[in-house]
C-alpha cells in the first residue's frame, strides 16, 4: 500500500511540475524550486508535527497559535536583549511545553481533540496578543536576518532545517519503536494499551512533538519576516491538513507516511503557483483548497476497508 501511494503522490507532483513548466518555464528551475522550499519551510515544519499527531490518532488546531505565541515571546526576549540563540531555544522549548499541555488535556478530557485544541488555540492566540498589547514587534536582531540569508551548498539554512525536521520525523516514525507505538495508538488505542503501550505517555509525546515543531517553525518564520505578528500563521493548520489529505495520511490515525504528507504540501503549493499564473483569484483558490480537503476526506472515509 505504501509503495503504491508513493508512486501516486510522486506522479501527481511530477505531472504538476510538468504542467507548470509548460506554463512558466522559469518557475521550474533549480533556484526556483529552492525558493519554493524556502517559502514552504514554515508550513512544512508545522506539518512534521501535525503529521506525527495525525498518525497518532490526534489533531491539533492550535499549532498556528503556538507559532504566533512562541514567535511573540522570542521577539520580546530578543527586544529585552537576550541573545538570539538562547531566546530561540527557549521558545522551541515553550512550544514543546504548550504541546504537552495539549497532550495532557486531550488525554484527560474525553472530547474530540478537534474541539479541545481549537479552544486551546484561542487561549494561545490571546496570550500571544498580550505579549505586546496586540501589536507586532519589529527591529529584531540583525543575526536573524543573516540566518535567513545564509546558505550551505547554495541551499538556504531554512531549507536545511526543514529537511532536517522531515528527516527526524521520518526516522522517529519508521525506525524507532516509539514510532510503532504512535502508529498503534492512532490505529487502535485500546489494542495498543492492552499490548502494554503506555498510551497516555505516547499521547503526551505526540502532542509535545507537535508543539516542538511548531516552535521550530516559528523561529524560521521570525527570521524570514523579520518581525513577530500576533496574528502569524493563522490558518496554517488548513494547509497542513490539505497536504495530509493529498498525501493519503488518514485523519482517523494509524495510516500513512509523513513523507507523503510533505509531498502533498508541495503539490498544493505548486498548484497554488500555477493558479496564480493563470490569474485565478484568491477566493477561488480558497474554494479549491476546501474542495480538495472535502474530496480527500470522503476518500479517506470510503477507504476504511482498505
Amino acid at each position: 500500500m505504501g509503495k503504491k501511494n508513493s508512486w501516486a503522490v510522486l506522479a501527481i507532483l511530477a505531472l504538476e511540475l510538468l504542467a507548470l513548466r509548460l506554463l512558466a518555464p522559469y518557475l521550474v528551475t533549480g533556484p526556483a524550486l529552492v525558493s519554493m522550499g524556502r517559502q514552504l519551510a514554515v508550513t512544512g515544519v508545522v506539518a512534521v508535527g501535525m503529521g506525527i499527531i495525525l498518525l497518532g490518532g490526534g489533531m491539533d488546531l492550535s499549532l498556528g497559535a503556538i507559532v504566533a505565541l512562541t514567535g511573540m515571546v522570542a521577539a520580546e526576549l530578543m527586544a529585552q536583549g537576550v541573545p538570539v540563540l538562547p531566546a530561540a531555544a527557549l521558545c522551541v522549548l515553550l512550544g514543546l511545553l504548550l504541546g504537552w499541555i495539549n497532550g495532557m488535556v486531550t488525554a484527560k478530557v474525553r472530547i474530540h481533540p478537534f474541539i479541545l485544541t481549537m479552544a486551546l488555540g484561542v487561549v494561545y492566540r490571546g496570550l500571544g496578543k498580550m505579549v505586546h498589547k496586540g501589536m507586532p514587534i519589529y527591529n529584531l536582531p540583525e543575526a536573524l536576518h543573516r540566518f535567513d540569508r545564509g546558505t550551505f551548498l547554495e541551499i538556504p539554512w531554512t531549507v536545511w532545517i526543514f529537511l532536517l525536521c522531515v528527516g527526524l520525523g521520518t526516522f522517529l516514525l519508521s525506525k524507532t519503536y516509539l514510532g510503532k507505538y504512535i502508529y498503534a495508538l492512532g490505529a487502535d488505542g485500546k489494542a495498543a494499551r492492552l499490548a502494554g503501550v503506555d498510551t497516555v505517555r505516547v499521547q503526551w509525546i505526540v502532542y509535545g512533538l507537535g508543539g516542538f515543531f511548531a516552535g521550530v517553525a516559528s523561529m524560521l518564520l521570525l527570521s524570514r519576516v523579520g518581525s513577530a505578528q500576533p496574528g502569524a500563521a493563522t490558518g496554517v493548520e488548513l494547509d497542513v491538513l490539505v497536504g495530509a489529505a493529498l498525501g493519503g495520511v488518514s485523519f482517523k490515525g494509524g495510516r500513512g507516511l509523513l513523507l507523503h504528507m510533505i509531498l502533498g504540501i508541495f503539490i498544493l503549493e505548486v498548484l497554488g503557483n500555477a493558479l496564480l499564473l493563470l490569474s485565478v483569484g484568491e477566493y477561488y483558490r480558497n474554494l479549491l483548497k476546501g474542495a480538495i480537503l472535502l474530496g480527500a476526506l470522503a476518500l479517506d472515509s470510503a477507504n476504511k476497508e482498505e
Partner: peptide
C-alpha cells in the same frame, strides 16, 4: 475490538 490493530 481490542486484541488487534486492524489497520496494521
Amino acid at each position: 475490538g481490542s486484541g488487534l490493530n486492524l489497520k496494521g
